[in-house]
Write a protein that binds this DNA or RNA. Structure first.
Length: 879
RNA sequence: GGACGCAUAGCUCAGCUGGUUAGAGCGCUGCCCUCACAUGGCAGAGGUCGAAGGUUCAAGUCCUUCUGCGUCCACCA
């Protein structure tokens, strides 16, 4: 056994283990290898442009815990890794890069620009994967997929074509969310509402026949008035009924527009009259359709005013706003300006204010898909945790709107549609197929042009659970691993991704893609703010890994993962410290145990009848921890599982058990127990902190072990009985024993002495409350290391347990003060007993409370009374 | 405007179906470098469970209202 440093060095160990896992292909998934069946999880694919942040770290640690646990349980585990091409985000990154060379994508041209994108992907695309790797994620890395790799693209095309055939994809001109900076359409979910304080401009529109008569309209976007083609009022609004049908001269543009009546108009808002701009507002668009209005587009795709804007042509939309307002004011048409709070939609990629813009796009008809997703949920085929998110999922599906899937960018899956010169569309799997279709239609070869647009990134992401398994090609993996078991993700992404995956899964695989959706919190800084680069409050996971180790990162993160997680750098110390404690306790064990004990594999190797009481006790505690941890993991309550392990290992195994058996290490059965409990605890801890546990395990066994391939411990029912015997003995007896020891050995100050401790079986409850008292009493006798006798018992015989105590009499405490304190506590005990007595005398309680509760209370009272009595006796016989 | 979440020790949170004298970690105080570990050990201080009502024999836990913080959704000009 090589000498191990007293300080755990994570960097060295983690590097070594990563290499080993790779060499041994430890995470390689194989279908139909085990009788336990499949257990698959797909990673939420991070953006290729991504750099590991705390959100990833949390998300992947959660998955890894489950994955490693299930692997240890013997399932055929597949954790599918990969990255998302992240259309706009990636294109933005590369556009910025070429901008440094003075280039734009337009000057470069589509093909060259695409080359640059792929080049970028080749160089930087693995960054995040490598970082996830460092975190210890046990994905089957050989399977790493990319949403734009060849097979995946095939799946995307197949889905587009199938949906089109089923009448669920259509093309049309509607008002969509347009980002003038990215010059592309966005889906509703990609345009985020953000509150902003703006203004409400009230403008006067004069009547053509009678310039002295006018209506006043209010708007938050005055520049759009240039595209007005009507003014609308509510048909039941008496103020305006006489004006319906009259003509108005639109200021600045001098276009004649009509006053129309429409139920949409809210009489109570503003003046009750509203300007109608069908090409620049979704409501106005609908009105325009209803009333057959003209659609006048006043803007170029980049947000600069076009020729329809008259003298405002060439101005950016915000500059145009200023100048329009000014011009209106000068013309005396501006009535007033009110401050106004409203939600402005912004591009989720570049934060530019989104423009409602009329354009021709491709859409997915969502209602039929959503209905099935809803039905599957109602049938209980999908569980969402925590439950409160179920409603969010449900509401979105109920109120769903069609999905705009075309994007005017270049990085992505090209829309598989070709047009001939007449504008006929040919939806096809390939250009050749399209050409063939066109040939049939025209009876001759014709030239075709492919639709220049690409598909929304999410149009590929929503296929992730089955496209990664090889769909549309049939295969063993697809058949075996689909549907997957669970999905871990952040709630922000329910609409973008989760709900859509459910739809696609049902539509194309006939089954929901996962049974459990686990939504975890957001990682925030200590002040509760989201971590972001711009705020400068982000803690880099790689920095933490470098300093404290990946185990420390994982451990601390999970321990803190209740709802949202508030992180500061100091919080990672707990993980580092724990790993170090684990390391040192193991070092101690290895220093003191015989090789025979270190080789112990299971409980059968221990002669339980010959076991010392402390070891019997730790067995019981271990069983309890094992059951609790297993249950917590099954319920996805990882922080609870981890906390249980933390307390068991540190608070019970180290602080009590190892202290107790020091000096008893010559017993081989004790040695074996010490080792076996440690080994099984390492196994239980392995899903949480894979590196350090495996390293230690390998040192103990002397064999390089891949712990995730070892079996998860199974509770041994026969050891549970020790639990029932846990009890505290007579306090008077303890005091007596201490006094005897002192007298017997003629103890001098600061002499460490072993104390024989009498403890009897019987009283099972009240252990914890007794503990503090006993420690006090023991201290009053001059024992400093009062490892107390919690849980130590040696059967009903009431014979000595043999727990080691150090008794330095140097620092005797103030006995009088302690006596007073104990007296107070005893009084409190008596008070509690009295309260119970009162309760028991209460008619309501006796008649209405369940009998077992009454019985419990009665017992408790008896116990409190007798304990108080005993403490009183003990006080009397003290020094 | 709609929906949801949180409020428990100085800080971060447990407290799962109402039933012992409300717990942990960090921080703080005191004593210890004792031969596994000072990234450690032992001992200790610290809470009228956000406010007010209500249900109940019994409320941190259930109901109502309010206050403060947070999140998501939303086409009202």
């Amino acid at each position: 056994m090589p000498e191990l440093s007293p300080r755990y060095n994570p960097q060295e160990v983690e590097e070594k283990r990563l290499k080993l896992w790779q060499e041994k292909k430890a995470f390689h998934a194989v279908a139909e290898r085990s009788r336990k069946g499949p257990f698959a999880v797909v990673i939420p694919p991070p953006n290729v442009t991504g750099v590991l942040h705390m959100g990833h770290a949390l998300n992947n640690t959660l998955q890894d815990i489950l994955i490693r646990y299930k692997r240890m349980q013997g399932f055929d585990v597949l954790w599918m890794p990969g990255t998302d091409h992240a259309g706009i985000a990636t294109q933005n990154v590369v556009e910025k890069q070429i901008a440094k060379e003075g280039l734009t994508r337009e000057t470069l041209g589509r093909d060259k620009f695409m080359e640059r994108l792929w080049e970028w992907k080749a160089h930087h695309g693995d960054t995040i994967i490598n970082q996830l790797h460092k975190l210890g994620s046990s994905c089957d890395w050989d399977r790493t997929r990319f949403t734009m790799d060849e097979g995946y693209s095939e799946a995307v095309r197949e889905v587009f074509i199938t949906l089109h055939e089923r009448g669920l994809i259509y093309q049309g001109s509607y008002i969509i969310n347009w980002c003038p900076r990215c010059t592309t359409a966005l889906a509703d979910e990609e345009a985020e509402h953000k509150d902003a304080s703006g203004s409400l401009w009230h403008i006067r529109y004069a009547l053509k026949d009678d310039p002295f008569q006018s209506v006043i309209v209010a708007t938050t976007r005055p520049e759009t008035m240039l595209g007005d083609t009507a003014v609308a009022v509510n048909p039941s609004d008496e103020r305006y009924t006489h004006l319906i049908g009259k003509v108005i001269i639109l200021p600045l543009i001098n276009r004649e527009i009509t006053i129309i009546a429409d139920d949409f108009v809210d009489r109570a808002f503003g003046s009750g009259a509203v300007k109608v701009t069908p090409a620049h507002d979704p409501n106005d668009f609908a009105m325009g359709r209803r009333h057959n209005l003209e659609f006048i587009n006043i803007m170029h795709p980049n947000g600069v005013m076009n020729a329809n804007a008259g003298r405002f042509e060439g101005l950016d939309r915000f500059e145009a706003r200023k100048q329009v307002v000014q011009a209106l004011d000068e013309a005396g048409m501006l009535v007033k300006i009110e401050p106004h709070m409203n939600a402005v939609r912004r591009c989720y990629r570049c934060d530019t204010v989104v423009e409602p813009y009329l354009s021709r796009q491709w859409f997915v008809k969502m209602k039929p898909l959503a209905e099935k997703a809803l039905a599957a949920f109602h049938d209980g085929k999908l569980r969402i945790q925590p439950k409160r998110w179920e409603k969010v999922y449900e509401n979105w599906l109920v109120d769903i709107r069609d999905w705009c899937i075309s994007r005017q960018i270049w990085w992505g899956h090209r829309i598989p549609v070709w047009y001939d010169e007449q504008g006929n569309t040919f939806v096809a799997r390939s250009e050749a197929e399209a050409k063939e279709k066109a040939r049939v239609k025209h009876g001759k070869e014709v030239t075709l042009l492919q639709d220049p647009d690409v598909l929304d990134t999410w149009f590929s992401s929503w296929l992730w659970p089955f496209a990664t398994l090889g769909w549309p090609k049939p295969g063993k993996d697809l058949k075996y691993f689909y549907p997957t078991a669970a999905l871990f993700t952040a709630p922000e992404i329910i609409f973008f991704w989760v709900a859509r995956m459910v739809m696609a899964g049902i539509e194309f695989m006939g089954e929901v893609p996962f049974k459990d959706v686990i939504l975890h919190g957001t990682v925030r800084d200590a002040k509760g703010r989201k971590m972001s680069k711009s705020l400068g409050n982000a803690i880099d996971p790689l920095e933490i890994i470098g300093e404290y180790g990946a185990d420390a990162l994982r451990f601390s993160m999970i321990l803190n993962s209740g709802q949202d997680i508030y992180i500061s750098k100091e919080k990672f110390e707990i993980g580092r410290n724990f790993a170090n404690k684990l390391w040192n306790a193991s070092r101690f064990v290895m220093m003191n145990l015989a090789p025979e004990a270190l080789r112990i594999e299971d409980f059968a190797g221990i002669d339980h009848a010959a076991l010392d009481p402390a070891s019997q006790w730790i067995m019981a505690r271990y069983q309890k921890a094992l059951v609790a941890v297993t249950e917590a993991i099954e319920q996805f309550r990882y922080s609870e599982a981890e906390n249980t392990l933390y307390e068991f290992f540190w608070g019970t195994y180290c602080d009590w058990y190892l202290e107790m058996i020091k000096g008893r290490m010559d017993d081989i059965n004790t040695q074996k127990t010490v080792c076996l409990i440690l080994k099984n605890t390492l196994k239980m801890l392995h899903p949480f902190i894979p590196f350090v546990t495996e390293e230690i395990y390998s040192h103990i066994t002397g064999v390089e072990t891949v712990l995730t391939l070892e079996a998860w411990p199974i509770p041994e029912e026969k050891y549970a009985y020790a639990q029932a015997e846990v009890g505290m003995g007579s306090i008077v007896a303890i005091i007596t024993a201490i006094r005897n020891v002192r007298a017997q050995w003629n103890i001098k100050p600061n002499d460490p002495v072993e104390c024989v401790f009498v403890a009897a079986a019987g009283s099972e409850t009240g252990l914890r409350t007794n503990e503090a008292m006993i420690k006090r009493l023991v201290r009053m006798s001059g024992i400093r290391y009062a490892t107390s006798a919690e849980g130590i018992t040696n059967s009903a015989a009431g014979v000595a347990g043999d727990i080691k105590f150090f008794i330095p009499l140097g620092d005797l405490i103030d006995v009088a003060k302690e006596k007073a304190r104990i007296t107070a506590e005893v009084a409190q005990m008596e008070k509690a007993a009295h309260a119970i007595a009162g309760r028991l005398a209460n008619e309501g309680f006796v008649s209405k409370a369940p009998p077992e509760v009454i019985e419990k209370e009665r017992q408790r009272m008896t116990e409190l009374t007798s304990r108080a009595l005993e403490f009183n006796k003990a006080l009397a016989c003290l020094i």
